[in-house]
Design a protein around this nucleic acid. Structure first.
Length: 200
DNA sequence: GTTATGATCTCCT
DNA sequence: GGAGATCATAACG
C-alpha cells in the first residue's frame, strides 16, 4: 500500500508528478489522521529550472532539504503566511521536488474543517498548496521527514486516471522564471472540483 | 545589519 | 477583479 522508496528515487520528476495523481496522501499529526487523493501537482526540475529554489545549484539552509535522498518532505513558508508541502525526488545530490497543489479529501473531514475554521466542506478546503498544508496539519517542523514514517506517507489504492483526463499546463506563480515559466510542469485531474483555479 | 520579494489565500467591492 | 496580510530567506553592503 505505502509507496516504497523506489517510487521516489527515479530521476524523472515530470513522470513522478503525473504518477502522483490519484495517490493517497495521509498525515497523522497531533493524534489525528487526515488525507485524500492527490489531484494537482507541479514539478520543479532541479538546478536547470529557473522556477526551482535550487536553480543554478543554489545551496542554502532552506534548500538543503532538496538535495537529500528522495522520498522525504520539503516544507517551507511562502509569502510569510503559507506553508508549502513538497515531495523530494531522485537520489541524493539531485534537488528535484514536487509541489502538492490540491487533494480530494477522503479522511478526517471534521479535523480538516476545524483546522481551516470552516463549518461545511467546500472545494476550497484543500484547493491550492497553502490550503492543503493547513488542512493536513503540515508545518515546517516536519520538513525532511521520511514518507516511510507514520507521520506522513503516501499510499497507492489502485486509483488511476486515464491520460485523457489528465491536463499538463504551465505552472502557477512563477512568472519570474522567464521562459521556464512556460514549461507544462503542472498536472491536474480534469473536472475535479478541488483543482485550483488558474488555467482551469 | 539592511532590504526586497515571494512555488499564496482571503476578504472586500 | 484587486489589494492586503506578514515574515523567512537570500542577496547585498
Amino acid at each position: 500500500m505505502k509507496l516504497t522508496e523506489a517510487f521516489y528515487l527515479r530521476d524523472d520528476v515530470i513522470a513522478i508528478s503525473k504518477d502522483l495523481l490519484g495517490k493517497y496522501l495521509f498525515t497523522h499529526i497531533d493524534g489525528l489522521t487526515t488525507g485524500g487523493y492527490i489531484v494537482e501537482t507541479e514539478a520543479y526540475n532541479g538546478i536547470i529550472d529557473k522556477a526551482s529554489h535550487a536553480y543554478g545549484n543554489r545551496q542554502t539552509p532552506r534548500t538543503k532539504t532538496m538535495y537529500l535522498r528522495g522520498g522525504i518532505a520539503y516544507v517551507y513558508l511562502c509569502y510569510g503566511i503559507h506553508e508549502m508541502f513538497n515531495i523530494v525526488t531522485s537520489v541524493e545530490g539531485r534537488p528535484q521536488a514536487i509541489l502538492i497543489r490540491a487533494i480530494n479529501p477522503t479522511e478526517g473531514l471534521d479535523v480538516m474543517l476545524s483546522r481551516r475554521n470552516m463549518l461545511a466542506v467546500k472545494p476550497n478546503i484543500t484547493m491550492g498548496p497553502g490550503s492543503v498544508a493547513k488542512a493536513l496539519g503540515i508545518s515546517r517542523n516536519i520538513n525532511a521527514f521520511s514518507l516511510q514514517s507514520d507521520t506522513i506517507w503516501i499510499e497507492d489504492r489502485g486509483l488511476v486516471f486515464p491520460d485523457e483526463s489528465i491536463a499538463a499546463v504551465p505552472r502557477v506563480g512563477v512568472s519570474y522564471a522567464a521562459k521556464d515559466a512556460l514549461l507544462p510542469y503542472r498536472f491536474y485531474v480534469k473536472r475535479n472540483p478541488y483543482v485550483s483555479k488558474p488555467n482551469k
